[in-house]
Design a protein around this nucleic acid. Structure first.
Length: 284
DNA sequence: AAGAGGCCCTGATAGC
DNA sequence: TGCTATCAGGGCCTCT
């Protein structure tokens, strides 16, 4: 989700900004999108100008104004391996600091370290975009980011007019707002006291205001806590997020509602094949 | 044309 | 050194 990608971006930026790519090795070209034959050649000897994040995408701007667009999908991680002492700093959240043995698909070498793209399920991708126009075109479909001033109660209220779809699915809909994923969607709705199955058109302006406020709040807090680490690997010594400790509903099915004076129990329900957690009692 | 559902893929875990 | 089903942080594509 957006906070996790943001944390990766920040740690990656410190390390590779203005550095020169010495070499690229691709071990598996078959990611979500197949890597073209000239991928390595296009990266080699390029300097990194900028690292940015747009919703859940990582963007690396090269000195020839081509762009690497990276998406981590469900299981992608980026690791940084130091050449000198062979130590390994993890740039992601929910993985250990040890580089996995399998699925290290792409290695990008710098003078004294390399970054490794690992992705067991290969739902993620690495793409080279030829220029800024193409980049803009590719990401044009995205709705406003949660922190964008355009994402306000008026926008939400107007967007939801006559929409039959439930609110949970809209939070995951990147055309509506870009960056929320399955964890934070449940958390946002809990704080907003809105039932995830509620049809969007039934939300009033106050509900929309809550959605906006708590979306910004949850994502901001998640970033400030280094994201969420929900899978624990065996060797835990790398960088881990802490926001999972703040979960109010996610993966808390069967447990008591944390809201003051609420006697409800957290429910788990499949909505469009994604697990959704909520309190039946205080989310109306 | 909005919305639902299948699908891409591997690995961890629960239950038998 | 069992097997099998289910679930996982996402998004693209097709069908209605």
């Amino acid at each position: 989700e957006l906070p996790e990608v943001e944390i990766v971006k920040q740690s990656l930026k410190k390390k590779i900004k203005l550095k020169k790519i010495k070499k690229v090795i691709v071990k598996n070209r078959n990611l979500r999108f197949r890597l073209p034959k000239d991928f390595e050649k296009n990266l080699k000897n390029r300097f990194i100008r900028k690292i940015l994040r747009i919703s859940k995408y990582l963007i690396i701007e090269l000195d020839n104004y081509k762009y690497c667009v990276i998406h981590l999908g469900m299981s992608g991680t980026i690791h940084l391996i130091d050449k000198k002492n062979n130590s390994n700093t993890n740039l992601s959240f929910y993985h250990s600091s040890i580089l996995p043995k399998k699925h290290n698909h792409i290695e990008v070498f710098f003078s004294d370290f390399k970054i490794v793209y690992n992705d067991p399920r290969r739902f993620g991708f690495f793409q080279l975009i030829k220029d800024s126009i193409s980049l803009k075109k590719k990401l044009d479909y995205l709705g406003p980011e949660p922190f964008d001033s355009k994402f306000d109660q008026k926008y939400v209220y107007l967007f939801f007019k006559n929409k039959e779809k439930n609110i949970k699915n809209f939070l995951l809909d990147q055309y509506f707002v870009s960056g929320i994923g399955n964890i934070y969607a449940s958390e946002i709705l809990f704080l907003s006291k809105i039932n995830p199955t509620k049809k969007a058109r039934l939300l009033n302006i106050k509900d929309c205001k809550k959605i906006v406020i708590y979306t910004k709040k949850v994502l901001f807090n998640a970033i400030s806590k280094g994201g969420s680490s929900i899978r624990n690997f065996k060797n835990i010594s790398g960088v881990k997020g802490n926001f999972q400790k703040d979960f109010k509903v996610y993966q808390r099915d069967g447990l008591n509602c944390k809201r003051f004076k609420c006697t409800g129990v957290i429910q788990k329900k499949n909505i469009s094949n994604r697990s959704t957690f909520f309190c039946n009692t205080c989310q109306k």
